[in-house]
């Protein structure tokens, strides 16, 4: 077994434990590369049967148009069940509030919609594509990560997790977040996408795009959600996206990489980390931990 085989076997084992230990699991799907890998691993784990869980997409309203159409095609090709819940509806219902200013983000608001959806359907486990190598708070995650009845993470008192014996026992109202890709690196994900010939949104490949440079020097794609103040530079550049989140928090990277091999080479020699391009992580030093405590995945 090579390293990808070992990672695949570990993840498939985890997915099958979810299927066996929970009554109503769900798979969180963003349309990004990591959740696409999760779908392929679900096929490996459960075909020729159906997935033992539906796929849930939290539509922030700030998604790239392309991610949404890609999402719909992918789920249709797999003939699996998809649930979509919208941050817009949470805002209309007064459950969440939009940010104001020139660059509003809905990153934080999506935790409200996610927790509401979990309650609405009674999900007891939510599978996510987060990886330990992405971010310092995620580096602390278990495979089965316990969440209290409010959906919050208590990082200072996590359950021990030994070998591959996963403890999925929870009380009514509590939930588990499950991270089958914990041990995958960004490099592993791209190597697997190549090996499995996975289709991915073209946002990941080099293209021309109108972008805006903000006063702090960071870049965002231009979109209808932002209103750059005078002084912020709007320019067309050759870019790609290294992670795909919302248009309002995902910075493009300047890149000529237009094939999987070029992307893999670019990552191998990268001087900056993957989530260095995520504005949602840069808001404070503990931005990810804070959001995870609130129920973000």
């Amino acid at each position: 077994m090579d390293t990808l085989d070992i990672l695949e076997a570990e993840s498939v084992h985890v997915l099958r434990e979810v299927a066996a230990q929970f009554k109503r699991p769900v798979l969180l799907f963003s349309g990004g590369k990591d959740s696409l890998v999760l779908l392929r691993l679900s096929e490996k784990a459960f075909r020729p049967g159906k997935f033992p869980y539906p796929v849930l997409h939290i539509d922030t309203g700030h998604n790239f148009e392309e991610t949404l159409s890609f999402r719909d095609q992918t789920i249709e090709r797999l003939s699996e069940q998809m649930i979509v819940r919208r941050v817009e509806d949470s805002i209309q219902a007064g459950r969440a509030q939009d940010e104001t200013g020139p660059y509003p983000s809905r990153n934080r608001q999506q935790s409200v919609t996610l927790l509401d959806a979990i309650r609405e359907f009674g999900f007891d486990a939510a599978i996510g594509g987060a990886r330990r190598d992405e971010e310092k708070a995620r580096a602390k995650e278990r495979f089965f990560s316990y969440r209290n009845a409010q959906g919050g993470w208590e990082p200072h008192q996590q359950r021990p997790e030994l070998w591959n014996l996963y403890n999925g026992r929870i009380h009514l109202g509590e939930q588990m977040r499950v991270f089958p890709l914990n041990n995958w690196t960004e490099f592993d994900v791209w190597s697997y996408i190549k090996r499995e010939r996975l289709e991915i949104p073209s946002l990941y490949f080099s293209h021309q795009r109108t972008c805006v440079r903000r006063a702090d020097g960071s870049w965002l794609p231009m979109s209808k959600h932002v209103t750059p103040p005078p002084g912020d530079l709007v320019e067309t550049r050759t870019v790609r996206f290294r992670t795909v989140g919302d248009m309002t928090c995902t910075s493009p990277v300047f890149s000529q990489a237009s094939s999987l091999d070029e992307i893999i080479e670019e990552i191998r020699t990268a001087e900056f980390s993957e989530r260095g391009s995520r504005a949602d992580d840069q808001r404070s030093e503990t931005a990810m931990e804070d959001r995870k405590r609130e129920g973000y995945f």
Binding site: D133, E135, A137, A139, K140, P155, H156, F187, E289
Partner: peptide, 23 residues
């Protein structure tokens, strides 16, 4: 570099395992 939790940085100790990857 590995003490990623707020409480760890404040107290200057490691509370839980941090996983790191390199090749």
């Amino acid at each position: 570099f590995t003490d990623g939790l707020k409480a760890e940085r404040e107290k200057g100790i490691t509370i839980d395992v941090a996983y790191r990857y390199f090749s």
